[in-house]
């Protein structure tokens, strides 16, 4: 059964139609990636899944429940956590406090083991435990954003451009960790990326978005081999 099912979703910003009828699904245990150019509507789709902005037409089902009219915080309490665009960590709080914030709606009895799990995935965060989050490097902040999302015990993890502004080596580390989270922690991942090469290599399946429409879909390997994808997103840039 599909974990997240998006059916004919349209989203508007005022009069501008950002999503023009999107259909896609994410199955349990998968890593699904959505690639596309700037302004294609990738972040809008991810945020629409979270309820801000809300879809004006269509349905979004999470484990069979329609979430398209629910407020953001309720959706996030169902087991969807995200590492939002621009990371949005709390810069003046310490790493530890940021992770505490991630677990704020969770039962405190899980806290210690979850913290240990996050520190296993990102040993760097443990070294920085009492540092102000805003003073860390971009890569560390991204790790924190993912770690904070994991503290909310998600079944579905939404990642919005985790590679943005990071050095290639760090990007590789982050993607390896995402794979590990998916494989070992059994978290389904929906990844929005501009870094098409890495994202498609990692993903089980992928979608390509152009101007608010899904134009292509397939397994990661298929899309990587697709000449259109190669021409538009892979060659020249990498």
């Amino acid at each position: 059964m599909s974990m997240l099912k998006i059916e004919g979703v349209h989203t508007f910003y005022g009069n501008i139609e950002a999503l023009k009828g999107i259909d896609m699904e994410v199955n349990e245990g998968e890593i699904v990636t959505l690639i596309g150019a700037n302004g294609a509507g990738k972040t809008t789709l991810l945020m629409t899944c979270c309820g801000s902005p809300q879809a004006s037409k269509g349905r979004i089902l999470f484990e069979g429940q329609d979430i398209s009219r629910m407020p953001m915080h309720e959706i996030c309490n169902l087991g969807i956590q995200q590492s939002p665009e621009g990371r949005r960590i709390f810069p003046r709080m310490s790493v530890y406090e940021n992770l505490q914030m991630g677990a704020i709606t969770q039962d405190p009895k899980h806290f210690d083991s979850d913290l240990e799990m996050v520190f296993d995935l990102f040993p760097r965060l443990k070294e920085r435990i009492s540092q102000r989050a805003g003073t860390m490097s971009g890569g560390e902040q991204q790790m924190l954003a993912i770690g904070r999302a994991l503290m909310g015990r998600p079944r579905l993890l939404l990642l919005d451009e985790p590679s943005l502004g990071l050095a290639p080596l760090v990007v590789k580390q982050i993607f390896e960790t995402v794979e590990k989270i998916n494989r070992e922690n059994k978290v389904t991942v929906f990844l929005v990326e501009q870094n098409a090469f890495h994202a498609l290599k990692l993903a089980h399946r992928g979608y390509v978005m152009v101007n608010g429409n899904i134009t292509l879909s397939g397994t990661g390997a298929e899309l990587l081999a697709n000449p259109e994808v190669r021409a538009a997103y892979l060659e020249g840039g990498h």
Partner: peptide, 13 residues
Amino acid sequence: EDEIACRSLGINP
């Protein structure tokens, strides 16, 4: 510090 981040963590603002 960040209202959107809070909402995405499940806090009712």
